[in-house]
């Protein structure tokens, strides 16, 4: 099934809009979901590190004589 040219490939026998419409949306949904998951993790890690940083500072102060 070799496409005559790239333009044929994108035309997709006249149904290009539908085919690429569905694949594009699927791609964006999946990419969006991954991005959301990463974003949620990063913000959480940043929050956690903010909480734990002061505790480490206190530990350092106590240890110094």
């Amino acid at each position: 099934m070799s496409w005559a040219s790239w333009s044929d490939f994108f035309a997709m026998g006249g149904y290009g809009f539908y085919v690429w419409g569905s694949y594009l949306v699927s791609f964006f949904c999946m990419a969006g979901e991954i991005a959301l998951a990463f974003n949620r993790k990063r913000t959480l890690l940043r929050q956690l590190s903010l909480i734990h940083k002061p505790i480490q500072k206190e530990q350092n102060n106590e240890t110094t004589p």
Partner: peptide, 15 residues
């Protein structure tokens, strides 16, 4: 690239 064109729906079936 491998699957043939469907005789009924030509390319739309690739969805």
């Amino acid at each position: 690239f491998v699957a043939p064109t469907d005789f009924q729906q030509s390319e739309a079936y690739r969805i």
